[in-house]
Amino acid sequence: MPLVSTGELVTKARAKGRGIAAFNVITLEHAEAIALGAERAGSPAILQISENAVKFHGGRLSAVAAAAAAVARASSVPLSLHLDHVESVELLRAAHPEGFSSVMFDASKLSYADNVKATAEAVRWAHERDIWIEAELGKVGGKEGEPPLDAHAPGVRTDPAEAAAYVRDTGVDALAVAVGSSHAMTERTAVLDHTLIAALRDAVPVPLVLHGSSGVPDEEIRRAVASGMVKINVGTALSTAFTGAVRGYLEAAHPTVVDPRKYLAPAREAMAGTVERFLGVLRA
């Protein structure tokens, strides 16, 4: 199946009052697992590659992007390719020739004024090339290289009035907001502010994005979608499944195995199961 655009998947999900899941790709096995889990669930999904994943691959986007795109095109369900948490303008501009239909441009570390200026420039460049742009306002902590952040600390949450002004002044197509989740959570204990989600939904005209969904319980995700969240990002849950399967295979019964296919197969299967489960939560 040809690659579909992220904007199309998000727009359709929003019109139906549903969520669309976006899963992080680090290795080929991640991409294969996402496609397999989506096929089993009979649901579309988004394959997203972060700037940190690109750094892991030596700063070279082409190989991992080509692999993910090839897996997506071979899938029987609609899949799109998204470049996530991009801070580098050079990487943003590399998205177009590699076939990405969308980019999350992350200027959240900048002051509000500088964030607006940088994001508006990114949006102008991207829209000239028919690329859909997501941005972040508020502080969704837990990203690699950042100190721990209390998701409930004062000033962390996204303000609806500021969000409305931000969307108006930048022209972004979607907005990631801080409502109580955090990146890199390995336990599903996050409690979301559903009143705030509804207020943000009413304040801004674009779809809302929930980052750090790996740490959010199923019922909280369902309520978040009902309150107005559309794009649901999942990364750490796949890494947890991958690592747990590899560790279990090697430590439990196969400590002498050296063929990586032996332990990557159960790791890929574990990630596919995680993808299928998250998609089931969004479909329920």
Score class of each variant (00 low, 15 high):
176 A>F: 12
58 G>A: 03
123 V>G: 01
167 V>R: 09
274 T>H: 02
108 S>D: 05
58 G>H: 09
43 S>A: 14
170 T>A: 03
229 M>V: 02
255 P>K: 00
62 S>M: 05
13 A>G: 07
73 R>S: 02
48 Q>H: 12
184 A>Q: 11
50 S>P: 13
148 P>H: 00
176 A>W: 15
78 P>L: 05
47 L>H: 08
103 V>C: 10
190 A>L: 11
266 P>E: 07
205 P>I: 03
104 M>A: 06
213 S>A: 11
129 R>K: 11
36 L>E: 14
45 A>T: 09
113 A>C: 01
230 V>E: 15
140 V>E: 11
132 W>K: 05
211 H>V: 00
136 E>L: 06
248 G>Q: 04
44 P>W: 13
250 L>H: 01
207 P>T: 02
69 A>R: 13
200 L>W: 15
106 D>N: 13
189 T>M: 14
150 D>C: 08
199 A>V: 05
77 V>Y: 01
253 A>F: 14
282 L>E: 01
168 R>A: 15
51 E>Y: 07
77 V>L: 07
30 H>M: 05
146 E>T: 12
102 S>G: 14
132 W>R: 00
45 A>P: 01
268 R>H: 04
76 S>C: 02
16 K>Q: 01
122 A>S: 08
261 R>M: 03
211 H>K: 08
60 R>W: 04
